[in-house]
């Protein structure tokens, strides 16, 4: 008789600097609301982490509609960071999230360094926030956002200010809309970031040839989805080789094989973004798929595949 070996359950836990996740799968900011909507579809405690929609000091209305359109294997959005504001988040949304056994990553943005600082200070005092992700890369708002993320010194200043305002782990979310992301990653590291999120959306545009108008009211928007995956994988790989910080990889991850591609390129964790819209169960399917891959390849720990591309 052939003795069947029961495969050992691999460990999925990963560390983003001081932040330990039970598995490498997070939901990307702006694609998962504040968690409530998706809690109807699966148990949020299954996730490695949840990143909230971007939070600002004051509530924001966002951009006028139409705000999104579909593009080949992707979509353009210009939501304009509509959000309830940090105070209402802490009061009304956070208690719900705190009820799950997962890491809550608060994504923040501001128009000035002081605003970033003030939002951080409030979240630092709130119970149930495990890390702060600093968005300096939103292509859809006039001030703040990408204006910081495409200027090396502004990148340093914002991350430094956030770093000084909190003892929570700080994650810098960088813009891909620059010639080379590496110097930005480097500046964020020097300013005290614990980890990096790569990538935010790529600036794009689509035109309706009948009306001759841009398809979204903001004219330009952020491109996400499978269309941007090769760009994102390339950036993760470049930054992984050059900078010592752990990376959350994202950009068009739809399933476990996409997620594994990012991990092999150097991502410690991965985020599902646009995938949530197409398949609310995408994050849990990705977790299961990563585990299956590890078992099939006899790898006992998820961290052993990070950066293992044979390049």
């Amino acid at each position: 008789m052939v003795k069947t070996l029961t495969p050992i359950k691999p460990s999925l836990a990963v560390k983003l600097g001081p932040l330990t996740l039970k598995n490498p799968v997070i939901t990307a900011s702006g694609t998962f609301g504040y968690g409530e909507e998706y809690s109807k579809y699966f148990d949020l405690s299954l996730l490695g982490g949840i990143t909230t929609k971007g939070l600002s000091l004051k509530p924001m209305q966002g951009n006028p509609p139409p705000r999104l359109c579909e593009t080949p294997s992707g979509m353009l959005n210009a939501i304009g960071l509509q959000n309830v504001g940090v105070d209402e988040f802490i009061e009304k949304k956070l208690p719900f999230l705190a009820g799950f056994d997962t890491k809550v990553i608060a994504n923040i943005f501001g128009n000035t360094v002081e605003e970033y600082e003030a939002v951080t200070a409030r979240l630092d005092r709130a119970k149930g926030v495990h890390a702060i992700e600093v968005n300096i890369s939103c292509p859809n708002v006039k001030n703040g956002g990408m204006a910081f993320g495409t200027d090396l010194e502004a990148t340093y200043d914002v991350i430094k200010a956030v770093r000084n305002a909190t003892s929570l782990p700080v994650i810098a979310k960088l813009s891909p809309n620059v010639t080379d992301v590496v110097p930005f990653a480097d500046r964020a590291a020097h300013a005290g970031a614990d980890a990096l999120s790569l990538i935010n959306t790529l600036l794009g545009m689509a035109i309706d040839i009948k009306s001759r108008k841009p398809k979204i009211a903001n004219i330009t928007g952020g491109l996400s989805g499978p269309a941007i995956r090769p760009v994102a994988v390339r950036i993760v790989w470049q930054v992984y080789r050059a900078v010592g910080l752990p990376i959350i990889g994202m950009g068009g991850i739809m399933d476990a094989s996409d997620a594994l591609e990012f991990m092999l390129a150097g991502a410690t964790a991965v985020a599902a973004g646009t995938a949530n819209f197409v398949n609310p169960l995408a994050p849990v399917e990705i977790i299961a798929g990563i585990e299956r891959y590890l078992i099939e390849n006899g790898i006992d720990h998820a961290r052993h595949i990070i950066g293992q591309v044979q390049a």
């Binding site: 694609t31 998962f32 929609k53 006028p64 139409p66 999104l68």
Partner: peptide, 17 residues
């Protein structure tokens, strides 16, 4: 009607005034 991504209230993409 409005262009939609998620359909469940998460993306804020489908708003009207």
């Amino acid at each position: 009607e409005s262009n939609m991504a998620c359909g469940i209230g998460a993306c804020m993409g489908c708003v009207i005034s």
